[in-house]
Amino acid sequence: MIEKLKNKEPRISEKIREIFQQSYKIEAEILEATDFPPLKRTLENFINSDTEFYAYIKNNKFAGVIEIDKKPNYVHIQSLVVNPLNFRQGIASELMNFTLNHFKSKLFVVETGYKNEPASNLYRNFGFIEVKQWETDFNIRKVKFELLKK
């Protein structure tokens, strides 16, 4: 089941931050990143964020969370994380399906680390096309994908 989260509630944001930490720790390892900004995200950042968070709930716990930033002309998938205990169970795909069907936008944008093949493959499987690559200030190569719905 997917539900919208009330991230302004500290207790909810604590749970969001916990799954982000678990998932991004694995991504940092995949990217061989020694300095990974998503792991530095504070609880206050989650509480004060104007983005929308949706969780895939499994056994009354957050198995995955997607963070959405609605822009005037597109939807930016800010983050998509899955609890490592729930990897390879289709949760990221469920969250992507939900997002692409729930938000009425023609353009969807997402970024990930270049070496994060599971994420890149997920986005490609949904029809996203790579539009840009660049090196960050943290020595992490990133890739940007876009999906233009008809």
Results as ranks from 00 to 15, higher is better:
Met1Gly: 11
Ile2Cys: 09
Glu3Trp: 09
Glu3Lys: 13
Leu5Ser: 11
Asn7Tyr: 07
Asn7Ala: 11
Pro10Cys: 09
Pro10Phe: 02
Ile12His: 12
Ile12Leu: 08
Ile16Pro: 15
Arg17Thr: 12
Arg17Lys: 15
Ile19Cys: 14
Ile19Lys: 14
Phe20Glu: 14
Gln21Pro: 15
Tyr24Leu: 09
Ile26His: 13
Ile26Thr: 12
Ala28Trp: 00
Ile30Thr: 13
Ile30Gly: 07
Leu31Ala: 15
Glu32Tyr: 13
Glu32Val: 15
Ala33Ser: 15
Ala33Thr: 15
Thr34Arg: 15
Asp35Tyr: 14
Pro37His: 14
Pro37Gln: 15
Pro37Met: 10
Arg41Cys: 03
Arg41Lys: 14
Arg41Met: 09
Arg41Ala: 03
Asn45Met: 08
Asn45Cys: 11
Phe46Ser: 11
Phe46Arg: 13
Ser49Asn: 14
Asp50Leu: 05
Asp50Thr: 03
Thr51Tyr: 13
Thr51Phe: 10
Ala55Gln: 10
Tyr56Met: 10
Ile57Lys: 00
Lys58Asp: 14
Asn59Leu: 03
Asn60Glu: 15
Phe62Ala: 05
Gly64Pro: 07
Gly64Glu: 00
Val65Arg: 08
Glu67Arg: 02
Ile68Cys: 10
Ile68Gly: 07
Asp69Glu: 08
Asp69Ser: 07
Lys71Arg: 08
Lys71Met: 08
Lys71Asn: 04
Pro72Gln: 06
Val75Glu: 03
Val75Pro: 06
His76Pro: 00
Ser79Trp: 04
Ser79Leu: 06
Leu80Lys: 01
Val81Asp: 01
Val82Phe: 01
Val82Trp: 00
Asn83Ile: 11
Asn83Lys: 09
Pro84Leu: 06
Leu85Pro: 03
Leu85Trp: 02
Gly90Lys: 08
Gly90Pro: 03
Ile91Met: 05
Ile91Ser: 04
Ala92Ser: 11
Glu94Arg: 09
Leu95His: 01
Leu95Ser: 04
Phe98Tyr: 10
Leu100Gly: 00
Leu100Ile: 05
Asn101Arg: 07
His102Lys: 09
Lys104Ser: 08
Lys104Pro: 09
Lys106Thr: 09
Lys106Trp: 04
Leu107Tyr: 07
Phe108Leu: 01
Val110Glu: 05
Val110Leu: 11
Val110Gln: 04
Gly113Pro: 07
Gly113Met: 07
Tyr114Trp: 05
Lys115Ala: 08
Lys115His: 14
Asn116Val: 09
Pro118Glu: 03
Ser120Arg: 05
Tyr123His: 04
Arg124Ser: 12
Gly127Pro: 10
Phe128Ala: 01
Glu130Cys: 12
Trp134Phe: 14
Glu135Ala: 08
Phe138Ile: 00
Phe138Asp: 00
Phe138Val: 02
Lys142Phe: 02
Lys142Tyr: 01
Val143Arg: 00
Lys144Gln: 08
Lys144His: 05
Phe145Tyr: 02
Lys149Ile: 01
